[in-house]
Amino acid sequence: MALKVSYMLRETGTNLVRRISLTIAAILTISISLALFGSALLARDGVANATARWEGGIEFVVWMNPEADADQDAAIRRSIDESPAVRDFTYVSQDEALAEFQDMFVDSPDLLDAVEATDLPPSYRVVPVDPDADVVVELGSQFLNQPGVRDVVFASEAIKDIQTQADRISQGLLYVGIVLLFAAALLILNTIVVAIGARRQEIEVMKLVGASNWFIRLPFMLEGLVHGIVGAGLAVGGMVIVRKYVIDGFSESQSLALLEGLRVTDAELFNRSLWVLAIGVAVGILGSLFAVSTKLDV
């Protein structure tokens, strides 16, 4: 068994090194495609975090005073609930607001320590029947001067624009990433086919002396797997850089205040990295499996 493992590793290593230019091409293609793919996912996460408050058609938020009494709160709730211009609304309590805050700033423990539930006002997030800007402003303004209300904040056109543009960009990255992934799978397939061709005589002898099918196939499949894993590893490195210098850069920029909330948590980065690694492994295995099953007649 030990001999078999060392044989497999040696053969895989030899294959990788013998055609180093093809190996590098396959790894780079897969890493670039997965980096684009992963960055698109991170961008989506970032924008979702930045605009979480405005998802699902919410057009304005009625912020209550934390000190508002139950009667004031009930009056606001009733007038929102009974308004024919409101399609839906959500009440976010102080505890829920804190939980949301903790999710958003999970990587900033100092900030989390400094904030408690009582610091955060409860709010009503309102989805109007008609999303037209004038109608929304008119509707929201009705609540502005009511007792117990601290402020009414509207989803600005800018935020909607950011959501739309970010969606477009991340979707574009996703599509380019998918096309490149397909190219990477083809490149892996071709690399393995070339490797099989170069070792045709050896494979013939292996078959003659009774090497099992998987013994012949496995080094080629491992080669594809290495392409996938190394490519995905580089892509994850790329994603870390994108988060640090692009996404965090936006959120720290003073001139782009609207993007202040744009951030990707460590958990999200970890989660997306696992996705990218899994896709890299899958592409590597599928590319090489297709090559050995069609070109390696054992």
Partner: peptide, 24 residues
């Protein structure tokens, strides 16, 4: 003959045992 040119005589023969998993 179908010998592997890049392997020595001993390696050519050993190859037949190696690929069917015989211990070293």
């Amino acid at each position: 003959f179908k010998l592997l040119e890049k392997k020595t005589v001993a390696e050519n023969v050993a190859f037949a045992l190696e690929v069917i998993g015989r211990p070293r």
